[in-house]
Amino acid sequence: MIGLDVDHPAFLFLLLLALLPLATSPLHGTPLPAVSLAPRDGFSIAVSLGIRLAGALAFAALVLGLAGLNLKAREVERIGSGANLMLLIDRSVSMDNTFADRAPGAGEESKSAAAKRLLTEFLGRRPRDRIGIAAFSTSPIPVLPLTDHHEAVAAAVAAIDRPGLALTDVGRGLALALDSFDASAASGGSRAVLLVSDGAAVIDPRVQAALRDSLKRSPVRLYWLFLRTVGSPGIFDKPRVPGEDTPQAMPERHLNLFLASLGVPYRAFEAGSPQAVADAIAEIDRQESQPIPYLERIPRRDLARLCYTVAAAACALLLAARLAERGLGARRSAGSDLTGINTRRAA
Protein backbone atom coordinates (compact mmCIF):
# COMPACT_ATOMS: atom_id res chain seq x y z
CA MET A 1 0.00 0.00 0.00
CA ILE A 2 1.28 3.44 -0.85
CA GLY A 3 1.13 5.79 2.10
CA LEU A 4 0.88 9.40 1.00
CA ASP A 5 1.23 11.95 3.71
CA VAL A 6 1.53 15.71 4.06
CA ASP A 7 3.53 17.64 6.63
CA HIS A 8 1.13 20.56 6.98
CA PRO A 9 -2.42 19.30 6.51
CA ALA A 10 -3.79 22.78 7.27
CA PHE A 11 -2.59 23.93 3.85
CA LEU A 12 -4.83 21.41 2.14
CA PHE A 13 -7.87 23.67 2.38
CA LEU A 14 -6.11 25.82 -0.24
CA LEU A 15 -6.90 23.00 -2.66
CA LEU A 16 -10.23 24.81 -3.07
CA LEU A 17 -8.29 27.25 -5.24
CA ALA A 18 -8.09 24.51 -7.84
CA LEU A 19 -11.79 25.19 -8.50
CA LEU A 20 -10.98 28.69 -9.79
CA PRO A 21 -9.90 27.55 -13.27
CA LEU A 22 -13.32 25.94 -13.70
CA ALA A 23 -14.94 29.35 -13.39
CA THR A 24 -12.56 31.47 -15.37
CA SER A 25 -9.37 31.40 -17.43
CA PRO A 26 -6.10 33.28 -17.33
CA LEU A 27 -6.43 34.37 -20.95
CA HIS A 28 -7.46 37.82 -22.05
CA GLY A 29 -10.45 36.69 -24.03
CA THR A 30 -12.82 38.80 -26.08
CA PRO A 31 -16.35 39.48 -24.91
CA LEU A 32 -18.90 38.43 -27.46
CA PRO A 33 -22.64 38.86 -27.26
CA ALA A 34 -23.44 35.38 -28.51
CA VAL A 35 -21.67 32.02 -28.36
CA SER A 36 -23.51 30.80 -31.40
CA LEU A 37 -21.23 32.96 -33.56
CA ALA A 38 -18.49 30.36 -33.11
CA PRO A 39 -18.94 26.99 -34.66
CA ARG A 40 -18.80 23.92 -32.43
CA ASP A 41 -15.40 22.41 -32.80
CA GLY A 42 -13.97 19.34 -31.03
CA PHE A 43 -10.41 20.60 -31.04
CA SER A 44 -11.43 23.89 -29.48
CA ILE A 45 -13.32 22.11 -26.74
CA ALA A 46 -10.29 19.95 -26.05
CA VAL A 47 -7.96 22.93 -25.83
CA SER A 48 -10.42 24.79 -23.64
CA LEU A 49 -10.65 21.80 -21.29
CA GLY A 50 -6.89 21.50 -21.40
CA ILE A 51 -6.44 25.09 -20.25
CA ARG A 52 -8.86 24.57 -17.39
CA LEU A 53 -7.18 21.34 -16.40
CA ALA A 54 -3.73 22.91 -16.57
CA GLY A 55 -4.94 25.71 -14.30
CA ALA A 56 -6.46 23.30 -11.80
CA LEU A 57 -3.31 21.19 -11.91
CA ALA A 58 -1.07 24.19 -11.31
CA PHE A 59 -3.05 25.16 -8.22
CA ALA A 60 -3.28 21.63 -6.85
CA ALA A 61 0.39 20.89 -7.41
CA LEU A 62 1.53 24.14 -5.80
CA VAL A 63 -0.68 23.59 -2.77
CA LEU A 64 0.46 19.98 -2.37
CA GLY A 65 4.07 21.07 -2.72
CA LEU A 66 3.60 23.71 -0.02
CA ALA A 67 1.85 21.20 2.24
CA GLY A 68 4.89 18.93 1.89
CA LEU A 69 3.52 15.89 0.12
CA ASN A 70 5.61 12.81 0.83
CA LEU A 71 5.60 9.06 0.69
CA LYS A 72 5.53 7.96 4.30
CA ALA A 73 8.35 5.92 5.74
CA ARG A 74 7.25 2.34 5.45
CA GLU A 75 8.18 -0.92 6.99
CA VAL A 76 8.36 -3.98 4.81
CA GLU A 77 8.39 -7.39 6.40
CA ARG A 78 11.21 -9.62 5.25
CA ILE A 79 12.53 -12.94 6.47
CA GLY A 80 16.00 -13.05 7.95
CA SER A 81 17.69 -15.40 10.32
CA GLY A 82 17.74 -14.56 13.97
CA ALA A 83 15.89 -15.00 17.20
CA ASN A 84 13.66 -13.33 19.74
CA LEU A 85 16.18 -12.95 22.48
CA MET A 86 15.66 -11.71 26.02
CA LEU A 87 18.86 -10.72 27.74
CA LEU A 88 18.46 -11.22 31.46
CA ILE A 89 21.29 -9.45 33.18
CA ASP A 90 22.40 -9.78 36.76
CA ARG A 91 22.87 -6.33 38.27
CA SER A 92 23.87 -7.37 41.75
CA VAL A 93 26.80 -5.64 43.41
CA SER A 94 29.22 -8.52 42.78
CA MET A 95 29.04 -7.84 39.02
CA ASP A 96 31.05 -4.69 39.69
CA ASN A 97 34.09 -6.76 40.68
CA THR A 98 36.65 -8.38 38.42
CA PHE A 99 36.79 -12.08 37.66
CA ALA A 100 39.29 -12.27 40.52
CA ASP A 101 36.63 -10.77 42.83
CA ARG A 102 38.43 -7.50 43.42
CA ALA A 103 37.39 -3.97 42.75
CA PRO A 104 38.73 -3.30 39.25
CA GLY A 105 42.07 -1.51 39.30
CA ALA A 106 43.90 0.17 36.47
CA GLY A 107 43.66 -1.92 33.29
CA GLU A 108 41.31 -4.43 34.88
CA GLU A 109 37.80 -5.06 33.73
CA SER A 110 34.82 -5.66 35.98
CA LYS A 111 32.46 -8.50 35.15
CA SER A 112 29.73 -6.06 34.17
CA ALA A 113 32.12 -4.13 31.91
CA ALA A 114 33.21 -7.41 30.31
CA ALA A 115 29.57 -8.40 29.84
CA LYS A 116 28.83 -4.99 28.31
CA ARG A 117 31.71 -5.21 25.86
CA LEU A 118 30.89 -8.74 24.79
CA LEU A 119 27.15 -8.20 24.51
CA THR A 120 27.78 -5.09 22.40
CA GLU A 121 29.91 -7.20 20.02
CA PHE A 122 27.31 -9.94 20.06
CA LEU A 123 24.56 -7.47 19.09
CA GLY A 124 26.67 -6.16 16.24
CA ARG A 125 26.80 -9.66 14.78
CA ARG A 126 23.05 -10.23 15.03
CA PRO A 127 21.29 -7.41 13.21
CA ARG A 128 18.06 -9.34 12.59
CA ASP A 129 17.29 -10.32 16.17
CA ARG A 130 14.50 -8.84 18.17
CA ILE A 131 16.09 -8.19 21.50
CA GLY A 132 14.66 -7.28 24.86
CA ILE A 133 16.49 -6.58 28.08
CA ALA A 134 15.58 -7.28 31.66
CA ALA A 135 17.74 -6.82 34.69
CA PHE A 136 17.41 -8.39 38.07
CA SER A 137 18.77 -7.82 41.47
CA THR A 138 16.59 -7.92 44.56
CA SER A 139 13.66 -7.38 42.21
CA PRO A 140 13.20 -7.96 38.49
CA ILE A 141 13.47 -4.78 36.41
CA PRO A 142 12.10 -4.69 32.87
CA VAL A 143 14.47 -2.45 30.90
CA LEU A 144 13.45 -2.68 27.26
CA PRO A 145 10.61 -4.60 25.63
CA LEU A 146 11.50 -6.90 22.71
CA THR A 147 12.42 -4.58 19.91
CA ASP A 148 14.32 -4.50 16.64
CA HIS A 149 15.58 -0.97 17.32
CA HIS A 150 19.15 -1.96 17.92
CA GLU A 151 20.30 1.52 18.85
CA ALA A 152 17.99 1.44 21.85
CA VAL A 153 19.26 -2.03 22.75
CA ALA A 154 22.82 -0.77 22.52
CA ALA A 155 21.93 2.15 24.80
CA ALA A 156 20.50 -0.29 27.35
CA VAL A 157 23.52 -2.58 27.15
CA ALA A 158 25.76 0.48 27.56
CA ALA A 159 24.05 1.17 30.89
CA ILE A 160 24.93 -2.17 32.52
CA ASP A 161 28.37 -1.22 33.76
CA ARG A 162 26.97 1.34 36.16
CA PRO A 163 27.19 0.33 39.83
CA GLY A 164 24.95 -2.61 40.64
CA LEU A 165 22.18 -2.79 43.16
CA ALA A 166 21.77 -5.36 45.86
CA LEU A 167 21.08 -9.09 45.88
CA THR A 168 20.41 -11.77 43.30
CA ASP A 169 16.85 -13.03 42.83
CA VAL A 170 17.26 -15.07 39.69
CA GLY A 171 13.87 -16.82 39.84
CA ARG A 172 11.68 -13.76 39.54
CA GLY A 173 14.06 -12.38 36.94
CA LEU A 174 13.51 -15.50 34.82
CA ALA A 175 9.77 -15.21 35.29
CA LEU A 176 9.91 -11.63 34.03
CA ALA A 177 12.00 -12.64 31.01
CA LEU A 178 9.55 -15.40 30.10
CA ASP A 179 6.64 -12.99 30.40
CA SER A 180 8.36 -10.54 28.09
CA PHE A 181 7.75 -12.62 24.98
CA ASP A 182 4.72 -10.91 23.57
CA ALA A 183 2.31 -12.04 20.90
CA SER A 184 4.58 -10.72 18.14
CA ALA A 185 7.35 -13.06 19.26
CA ALA A 186 5.05 -16.00 18.58
CA SER A 187 4.85 -15.16 14.88
CA GLY A 188 8.22 -16.61 14.01
CA GLY A 189 11.81 -17.07 14.96
CA SER A 190 13.13 -19.02 17.86
CA ARG A 191 12.71 -17.64 21.34
CA ALA A 192 15.59 -17.66 23.73
CA VAL A 193 16.55 -16.26 27.10
CA LEU A 194 20.19 -15.49 27.76
CA LEU A 195 20.86 -15.27 31.47
CA VAL A 196 24.06 -13.43 32.28
CA SER A 197 24.97 -13.71 35.92
CA ASP A 198 27.89 -14.25 38.23
CA GLY A 199 26.04 -16.10 40.90
CA ALA A 200 22.83 -17.85 41.68
CA ALA A 201 20.34 -17.94 44.47
CA VAL A 202 17.74 -20.26 45.85
CA ILE A 203 14.55 -20.07 43.82
CA ASP A 204 11.38 -19.96 45.85
CA PRO A 205 9.36 -23.19 45.25
CA ARG A 206 6.34 -21.12 44.20
CA VAL A 207 8.43 -19.29 41.63
CA GLN A 208 9.83 -22.65 40.48
CA ALA A 209 6.29 -23.92 39.89
CA ALA A 210 5.38 -20.75 38.03
CA LEU A 211 8.46 -21.07 35.81
CA ARG A 212 7.69 -24.71 34.97
CA ASP A 213 4.13 -23.75 34.19
CA SER A 214 5.14 -20.85 31.99
CA LEU A 215 7.69 -22.91 30.05
CA LYS A 216 5.14 -25.70 29.47
CA ARG A 217 2.81 -23.20 27.83
CA SER A 218 5.41 -21.48 25.71
CA PRO A 219 8.80 -23.14 25.54
CA VAL A 220 11.90 -21.05 25.02
CA ARG A 221 15.55 -22.00 24.78
CA LEU A 222 17.62 -21.12 27.82
CA TYR A 223 21.25 -20.12 27.94
CA TRP A 224 23.07 -19.39 31.10
CA LEU A 225 26.30 -17.49 30.80
CA PHE A 226 27.86 -17.93 34.22
CA LEU A 227 30.61 -15.41 34.79
CA ARG A 228 32.56 -17.46 37.26
CA THR A 229 34.67 -15.65 39.76
CA VAL A 230 37.96 -17.32 40.61
CA GLY A 231 37.55 -19.44 43.71
CA SER A 232 33.76 -19.25 43.81
CA PRO A 233 31.60 -22.36 43.47
CA GLY A 234 30.97 -23.38 39.87
CA ILE A 235 27.96 -24.73 38.04
CA PHE A 236 29.40 -28.21 37.56
CA ASP A 237 31.00 -28.68 40.97
CA LYS A 238 30.26 -31.96 42.72
CA PRO A 239 29.41 -31.82 46.42
CA ARG A 240 32.41 -32.78 48.52
CA VAL A 241 30.37 -34.03 51.47
CA PRO A 242 26.86 -35.50 51.11
CA GLY A 243 25.22 -32.98 53.40
CA GLU A 244 26.42 -30.08 51.24
CA ASP A 245 24.20 -30.93 48.28
CA THR A 246 21.43 -28.44 49.00
CA PRO A 247 20.29 -25.35 47.07
CA GLN A 248 21.33 -23.20 50.01
CA ALA A 249 24.88 -24.51 50.12
CA MET A 250 25.41 -24.80 46.35
CA PRO A 251 22.99 -22.43 44.62
CA GLU A 252 24.89 -22.45 41.31
CA ARG A 253 24.82 -26.23 40.98
CA HIS A 254 21.17 -26.39 41.92
CA LEU A 255 20.10 -23.60 39.61
CA ASN A 256 21.84 -25.51 36.81
CA LEU A 257 20.03 -28.71 37.80
CA PHE A 258 16.74 -26.85 37.99
CA LEU A 259 17.14 -25.23 34.56
CA ALA A 260 18.17 -28.56 33.04
CA SER A 261 15.07 -30.20 34.51
CA LEU A 262 12.66 -27.77 32.87
CA GLY A 263 12.34 -29.81 29.70
CA VAL A 264 13.40 -27.05 27.31
CA PRO A 265 16.67 -26.83 25.35
CA TYR A 266 19.19 -25.47 27.81
CA ARG A 267 22.91 -24.86 27.79
CA ALA A 268 25.13 -23.46 30.48
CA PHE A 269 28.45 -21.84 29.82
CA GLU A 270 30.84 -21.40 32.65
CA ALA A 271 33.18 -18.58 31.81
CA GLY A 272 36.10 -17.75 34.01
CA SER A 273 37.71 -15.17 31.79
CA PRO A 274 36.69 -12.67 29.10
CA GLN A 275 37.98 -15.10 26.41
CA ALA A 276 35.71 -17.90 27.66
CA VAL A 277 32.77 -15.50 27.61
CA ALA A 278 33.53 -14.71 23.97
CA ASP A 279 33.56 -18.43 23.13
CA ALA A 280 30.21 -18.92 24.83
CA ILE A 281 28.64 -16.06 22.93
CA ALA A 282 30.00 -17.44 19.67
CA GLU A 283 28.33 -20.75 20.47
CA ILE A 284 24.96 -19.05 21.07
CA ASP A 285 25.51 -17.15 17.86
CA ARG A 286 25.80 -20.47 15.98
CA GLN A 287 22.69 -21.97 17.49
CA GLU A 288 20.17 -19.17 17.26
CA SER A 289 19.69 -18.62 13.55
CA GLN A 290 16.25 -19.69 12.50
CA PRO A 291 14.12 -17.75 10.03
CA ILE A 292 12.59 -14.73 11.70
CA PRO A 293 10.39 -12.09 10.15
CA TYR A 294 11.89 -8.67 10.56
CA LEU A 295 10.86 -5.24 9.42
CA GLU A 296 12.98 -3.31 7.02
CA ARG A 297 12.41 0.42 7.18
CA ILE A 298 12.09 2.30 3.94
CA PRO A 299 12.66 5.99 4.61
CA ARG A 300 10.17 8.61 3.57
CA ARG A 301 10.43 10.17 0.13
CA ASP A 302 9.65 13.82 -0.35
CA LEU A 303 7.38 14.50 -3.27
CA ALA A 304 7.33 18.30 -2.96
CA ARG A 305 9.90 18.69 -5.77
CA LEU A 306 7.77 16.49 -8.00
CA CYS A 307 4.76 18.69 -7.18
CA TYR A 308 6.66 21.84 -8.15
CA THR A 309 7.75 20.18 -11.39
CA VAL A 310 4.13 19.41 -12.25
CA ALA A 311 3.18 22.97 -11.30
CA ALA A 312 5.92 24.39 -13.52
CA ALA A 313 4.76 22.25 -16.44
CA ALA A 314 1.15 23.36 -15.93
CA CYS A 315 2.23 27.01 -15.73
CA ALA A 316 4.24 26.53 -18.91
CA LEU A 317 1.11 25.24 -20.67
CA LEU A 318 -0.91 28.23 -19.45
CA LEU A 319 1.84 30.58 -20.54
CA ALA A 320 1.97 28.93 -23.95
CA ALA A 321 -1.79 29.26 -24.28
CA ARG A 322 -1.56 32.91 -23.29
CA LEU A 323 1.22 33.59 -25.78
CA ALA A 324 -0.77 31.86 -28.51
CA GLU A 325 -3.88 33.86 -27.72
CA ARG A 326 -5.07 36.12 -30.47
CA GLY A 327 -7.99 38.44 -29.95
CA LEU A 328 -10.67 38.95 -32.60
CA GLY A 329 -8.97 42.18 -33.55
CA ALA A 330 -5.74 40.41 -34.42
CA ARG A 331 -6.14 39.86 -38.09
CA ARG A 332 -2.77 38.34 -38.72
CA SER A 333 -3.79 34.86 -37.75
CA ALA A 334 -7.47 35.21 -38.47
CA GLY A 335 -9.03 31.98 -39.61
CA SER A 336 -6.55 29.83 -37.77
CA ASP A 337 -7.78 27.28 -35.28
CA LEU A 338 -6.49 29.27 -32.36
CA THR A 339 -8.70 32.23 -33.14
CA GLY A 340 -11.68 29.94 -33.13
CA ILE A 341 -10.67 28.58 -29.77
CA ASN A 342 -10.23 31.95 -28.24
CA THR A 343 -13.51 33.16 -29.49
CA ARG A 344 -15.16 30.25 -27.82
CA ARG A 345 -13.20 30.83 -24.68
CA ALA A 346 -14.14 34.43 -24.67
CA ALA A 347 -17.75 33.48 -24.74
Binding site: H149, E151, A152, A156, A158, A159, R162
Partner: peptide, 19 residues
Amino acid sequence: YLLFEPVEVCADFAPLEGA
Protein backbone atom coordinates in the same frame (compact mmCIF):
# COMPACT_ATOMS: atom_id res chain seq x y z
CA TYR B 1 19.45 3.25 38.60
CA LEU B 2 20.06 3.83 34.91
CA LEU B 3 17.89 1.67 32.66
CA PHE B 4 19.35 2.89 29.39
CA GLU B 5 21.45 5.73 28.06
CA PRO B 6 19.70 8.45 26.05
CA VAL B 7 18.11 7.17 22.83
CA GLU B 8 16.77 9.19 19.91
CA VAL B 9 13.17 10.18 20.64
CA CYS B 10 11.91 9.86 17.06
CA ALA B 11 13.74 6.84 15.63
CA ASP B 12 13.57 4.82 18.84
CA PHE B 13 10.24 6.09 20.12
CA ALA B 14 8.64 2.64 20.23
CA PRO B 15 11.11 1.00 22.63
CA LEU B 16 11.34 4.24 24.64
CA GLU B 17 7.59 4.37 25.08
CA GLY B 18 7.50 0.64 25.85
CA ALA B 19 10.11 1.06 28.55
